[in-house]
Design a binder for these strands. Structure first.
Length: 214
DNA sequence: CCCCAGGCGTCCA
DNA sequence: TGGACGCATGGG
């Protein structure tokens, strides 16, 4: 099946998702770190607690102790690691006068800079580039790999870069489309891709076989 | 009791 | 370069 066709089907079925759920770019970045290998439900609690304590701004977060931060984000798990990494992110942001200055860099340079920060790997960097900096990059996560493997969409699903290249080469480059596409994959997988037996119940399979796309 | 959740850094062959 | 492992809470 073509990636553009999959996008069309998901969009028609679920409608627009309007990601990322956050009020500011910095809050988005905080959420991106907190949600690493962690359910979004647990992250929401942490974000709310951080908001309550005024920790969602670079200035206050950079000045808070890791102990304070860790206590606030406890529900997200790995709280000692994540507290340190959030603090480093806040301090890095503070070094520039604003996030806008960081985000205005060319995409490859921005990606390299994000990847140099402790706790920001490929997925987190790409999420930030897409949802906070609003530049066109396709985010690969566990859901995307799973869907690509189970449909199957392609054989290039083992390696992060290979799967990302596959999407980049086979879809029109669009921030808005990539934003929706990734959100739709997550939405879909949360409902249908948790356990393998459910895959046969997935509406994509019915549509695909009906249209001879599998 | 188990497994999983919108990963990443480190270590080791 | 790639596979194992630690990190840790909350829900099913």
């Amino acid at each position: 099946m073509q990636p553009t066709k999959l996008f069309e089907l998901l969009l028609k079925y679920y409608g627009e998702q309007g990601w990322w759920p956050s009020k500011t770019s910095f809050e988005m970045m905080v959420g991106a770190i907190l949600t690493q290998n962690t359910s979004w439900k647990n992250v929401e609690k942490s974000i709310n607690e951080m908001r309550k304590q005024g920790l969602l701004k670079p200035i206050t977060l950079a000045e808070a102790s890791t102990k304070t931060i860790a206590a606030a984000i406890k529900s997200s798990g790995y709280y000692n690691q994540k507290a340190e990494r959030l603090k480093l992110l806040a301090e890095h942001t503070q070094k520039y006068s604003s996030l806008q200055k960081i985000f205005s860099k060319p995409l490859p340079e921005l990606r390299k800079e994000l990847l140099s920060l402790k706790g920001i790997g490929p997925e987190t960097a790409d999420s930030i580039i897409l949802y906070a900096a609003k530049k066109p990059i396709f985010v690969i996560d566990a859901y995307t790999k799973r869907l690509a493997e189970r449909l199957p969409l392609t054989k290039e699903f083992q390696d992060y870069n290979a799967l990302q290249d596959f999407f980049h080469k086979n879809t029109p480059k669009s921030t808005q489309a990539y934003n929706e596409y990734h959100a739709l994959i997550v939405k879909h997988c949360k409902e249908y891709c948790k356990k393998k037996p459910l895959c046969s119940e997935c509406f994509l399979r019915k549509d695909c076989s009906r249209q001879g796309l599998l």
